[in-house]
Computed example of a mutant assay.
Amino acid sequence: MLTCFDVAEYFLSKTEEDAGDVISNLKLQKLVYYAQGFCLAMYGRPLFNERIDAWQHGPVCPALYHKYKENGSLGIPAPTDVDFRKFSKEDSELMDEVYEVYGQFSAWKLRNMTHEEAPWKSTPIGSEISQASMAEFFKERLND
């Protein structure tokens, strides 16, 4: 089983810093949330076990937030030592698809998108967003 940190490193490894392509903590949180949601919907299992909470600015994995909070709103440097062997083909393809679809958006666009979605809207601020609510919502998204 992957951790939220593995998923984050996978997304961060896709940035091209030379091209000005960076991922802030806020954007990273949303990419990790979308990856978790689609994994639950498509495969009936979580991509990682760490919790995702409803915070003021949308879904947040607290453990991941605390790891990168010193970056503030700046881009997080791409990791240089990711072991891609730990990612199954299924998980890699899922994360590549999430990055292709959602990686193009700014952190604030992603934040605003999650504010319109049931898992965040139906969870009190500070509480955990249930995997069941994420699975249900993202299954509907797949069927649209």
Rank of each mutant, 00 (worst) to 15 (best):
15 T>A: 08
18 D>Q: 13
21 D>R: 08
21 D>G: 12
22 V>Y: 05
22 V>C: 07
23 I>A: 11
24 S>W: 02
24 S>Y: 05
24 S>K: 07
25 N>Q: 07
25 N>E: 12
26 L>S: 14
27 K>V: 11
28 L>V: 11
28 L>Q: 03
30 K>E: 04
31 L>I: 14
32 V>Q: 01
32 V>M: 07
33 Y>K: 00
34 Y>T: 13
35 A>S: 14
36 Q>R: 14
36 Q>E: 05
37 G>C: 02
39 C>W: 09
39 C>Y: 09
39 C>N: 13
41 A>H: 01
42 M>T: 13
43 Y>W: 03
44 G>L: 00
49 N>L: 09
49 N>H: 02
49 N>S: 00
51 R>Y: 08
52 I>G: 01
53 D>V: 04
53 D>M: 11
54 A>P: 00
55 W>Y: 08
57 H>P: 11
57 H>T: 10
58 G>S: 01
60 V>P: 02
60 V>I: 04
62 P>I: 11
63 A>P: 06
63 A>M: 15
65 Y>Q: 11
66 H>T: 09
66 H>Q: 15
66 H>V: 13
67 K>G: 05
67 K>Y: 14
67 K>E: 15
68 Y>C: 12
70 E>L: 09
71 N>F: 13
71 N>G: 06
72 G>V: 09
72 G>R: 00
76 I>S: 09
76 I>C: 00
77 P>S: 09
78 A>N: 03
78 A>Q: 08
79 P>A: 04
79 P>V: 04
80 T>M: 06
80 T>N: 12
81 D>Y: 01
82 V>Q: 04
82 V>L: 13
85 R>G: 06
86 K>W: 06
89 K>V: 13
89 K>G: 01
90 E>I: 10
90 E>P: 03
93 E>P: 02
93 E>V: 05
95 M>N: 01
95 M>H: 06
95 M>P: 04
98 V>P: 08
99 Y>H: 14
100 E>M: 01
101 V>Q: 12
105 F>G: 06
107 A>P: 07
107 A>M: 07
108 W>Y: 13
109 K>V: 15
111 R>C: 15
111 R>K: 15
111 R>S: 15
113 M>F: 15
114 T>E: 02
114 T>S: 15
115 H>S: 10
115 H>D: 06
116 E>K: 15
117 E>L: 04
118 A>M: 01
118 A>D: 12
119 P>N: 10
119 P>V: 02
121 K>G: 04
122 S>V: 12
122 S>E: 10
123 T>N: 08
123 T>W: 00
123 T>D: 01
123 T>Q: 03
123 T>S: 08
124 P>L: 03
124 P>W: 05
125 I>Y: 10
125 I>R: 07
126 G>P: 08
127 S>K: 14
128 E>H: 02
128 E>Y: 03
129 I>E: 05
129 I>R: 03
131 Q>G: 03
131 Q>E: 10
132 A>W: 06
